[in-house]
Write a protein that binds this DNA or RNA. Structure first.
Length: 263
DNA sequence: TATGTATGGTAAG
DNA sequence: TTACCCTACATAA
């Protein structure tokens, strides 16, 4: 279920494990080698970069990417739950709290070189305070891609997934086939700020919410699933009522309104 | 119960 | 560009 907001939320939540000496196991046996290497080590830090989670040990880093199907569950101490389906179990030896990892795309150990290389390949992460928009701006000016394709390219800007893509472009009234390189600096700044704000809201609420609470007349917490987004998987434009265009862009389905997103 | 689809990414062709 | 990964869930039958 992960776009960047959720990965950062996990990293936030997992700060409680930093400094802990941990018990590490691989219940499904598919990460035995790595689990043995990390067992009884002390966790130095937990970081999110785009859709990647990095758990720093010495000298190696545990790299987790949830992909499309992965999930992470937190378990309070003493709620003993032997789940053989989990790829990874990490337990804080001080508190007994643990987390379990299921169906990840990646669960592997990285050398410090491989860690740097991974981060180098990623574009600026909207949710990181050190994110440098100038890098994305430069890439965008040179890009031949349409906006819909550009926003999903994690090497140009990281953290945005398929739901946020459609939602951001709708809110900006920008057509997904408009060339990324055609944006003015002002338009880019607006895009960057909007995307960062939306991801921050998602991180806070642990859910993708792009609809305005004011417009609906209820707080975000009370919004129904279908009310939280504007165009993703919808039939009609929430503004003009026209049928939305559904099209695969960069190998993923995109929803947009030809009438409202003309720019 | 069967079918279709997917909030992501990689690698083969 | 396409197949694949091979799970979870919603919807159709």
């Amino acid at each position: 279920m992960p776009e960047g907001h959720l990965i950062h939320r996990v990293a936030d939540d997992h700060q409680i494990f930093v400094g802990a000496t941990v018990k590490v196991r691989s219940p499904d046996g598919r990460f035995m080698f790595g689990a043995e290497e990390l067992d009884s080590q002390t966790l130095q830090s937990v970081d999110a970069w785009g859709k990647h989670l990095l758990y720093q040990f010495k000298p190696k880093t545990l790299h987790i990417h949830l992909g499309l199907e992965g999930s992470i569950r937190f378990r309070k101490a003493h709620t003993l739950h032997e789940d053989q389906r989990a790829r990874l179990l990490v337990q804080d030896e001080r508190t007994g709290d643990s987390f379990l990892l299921y169906n990840p795309l990646h669960c592997e150990l990285l050398s410090s070189f491989a860690r740097k290389d991974l981060i180098r390949r990623l574009g600026p992460d909207l949710l990181r305070p050190d994110a440098d928009p100038e890098i994305t701006w430069t890439l965008m000016q040179r890009s031949q891609a349409g906006l819909g394709e550009f926003l999903l390219d994690q090497s140009c800007i990281s953290g945005i997934g398929n739901i946020y893509r459609s939602e951001i472009l709708f809110l900006l009234r920008m057509h997904p086939h408009r060339r990324a390189g055609s944006l003015t600096r002002e338009e880019f700044d607006t895009l960057w700020r909007l995307a960062a704000d939306l991801l921050e809201v998602g991180r806070h609420h642990n859910a993708i919410i792009t609809a305005s609470p004011k417009r609906l007349g209820k707080p975000r917490e009370q919004m129904h699933r279908s009310e939280r987004v504007l165009v993703y998987r919808k039939r009609e434009c929430p503004d003009c009522g026209a049928l939305l265009t559904v099209e695969r862009i960069a190998n993923r389905t995109a929803w947009f309104c030809e009438r409202c997103q003309s720019g």
